[in-house]
Design a protein around this nucleic acid. Structure first.
Lengths: 208, 208
DNA sequence: CGTGTGTCGCTTATGCTGTAAGCTTTCAAG
DNA sequence: CTTGAAAGCTTACAGCATAAGCGACACACG
């Protein structure tokens, strides 16, 4: 039952190597050849475990989703949902190069469905009707994934980085952005993410 | 000054053709050769107007953003912002194949910055302080782009389409999703999008 | 202890891709 | 009419996903 030298590859190992590779080199750099090399194997050998590159990408999304930590059920519904979305955002920060795959190729697996079921259960348990629970799920998920993507890509007007910096813009043409320049240096993305969560959850509580 | 037959290509024409092509054939199908063919020209000719494919993609995002319709200033701030995000979502529905580019390669152009400036001006004018205006911008934009992406890709559990259907899932394992199956057929995405906008804007008004 | 048998990795080959380099055609200005 | 630049064309290259077929090893069974 020991992994013989021959049987060195399997789907799991391939997907995890792909995630590691993309974490390191970026999504564009991923090719079957290079991933094979990473595993000490020729490109075509990967096809024994994965039907094509698209399925490889989907598998990477699975791996990512597997890292999502669902909070225990005994917490209050609101804190549980908060914590779940924090964990979701953590995925983006830990795998900024892989995360976009999750947005572009949403999972179609039982794992993904199970997550949704869990979410709905929590909200139904809190007293929301089925339809509101669905709306809440989509609003919160939309917000979280949109925010996380923006954070990964770097917000426009961030003081440092390659994107346009607020302070370099003409104060006459862009007074409001320029004014923000002062604040931008000390913006706390954790607090900012939480702000949006607050708005949505407060609104939801109002519909209970 | 008349466009001679020779001078048939220019950046604008190329970008618009690219958007049209991707609308029709999908993002993956876009190649310099095929785009050239679309314009009756060899692939390499495109490089006289666009430095590389990345810049082409960025230019397509520009074109998309150019289609965004900003509501006039004389409306109330809330309705103006609502209308702006509705227009944003419309982009996604009109160009579902191109829109993901906007999320993955956010624009770094003056056009984009000008949009932000406009947004901030509206919110500052409504009485929000600079920092809250920034938070609001990011929360709303995150929500809108995340929701639009989800809508484009097709929500999980949508009754029709290739994604997993709620009603095909075992009612025992996934009671909450199954229960939704009844509602899913008549979900109105317009109303759903508006629901999230309501939550966020109501919360924001509370901080005025 | 043979001897299949099927799994899995390797080799080779095809038709794409983006794009560098250099050539040629065309138009406009002097 | 000459000259120069702009812009299209041709060719070429390295890298891509992946189809097809080959060969070697690991295990199951006699």
């Amino acid at each position: 039952m020991v992994a013989t030298k021959r049987r060195s590859l399997d789907r799991r190992r391939i997907l995890e190597a792909a995630v590691r590779f993309v974490d390191r080199e970026g999504l564009e750099a991923l090719s079957m050849r290079k991933l094979g090399a990473e595993l000490g194997v020729e490109a075509m050998s990967l096809y024994n475990h994965v039907p094509n590159k698209g399925a490889l990408l989907d598998g990477m999304v699975e791996v990512l989703l597997g890292e999502l930590e669902l909070p225990p059920e005994d917490e209050g519904w609101e804190e549980r949902i908060r914590e779940a979305y924090r964990s979701f955002r953590r995925l983006a920060r830990e795998h900024p190069n892989v995360f976009p795959l999750l947005v572009i190729r949403p999972p179609d697996t039982m794992d993904g469905v199970w997550l949704v079921e869990e979410f709905l259960k929590t909200l139904r348990g809190a007293g929301f009707d089925a339809e509101t629970a669905l709306y809440a799920f989509r609003a919160l998920s939309g917000y979280a994934s949109g925010y996380a993507m923006a954070e990964i890509r770097g917000f426009a007007m961030e003081p440092s980085g390659t994107r346009l910096g607020a302070l370099t813009l003409s104060p006459d043409e862009f007074p409001n952005i320029h004014e923000l320049g002062i604040h931008l240096g000390k913006v706390d993305h954790d607090a900012e993410f939480e702000f949006g969560l607050d708005l949505l959850l407060a609104g939801l509580k109002g519909r209970l």
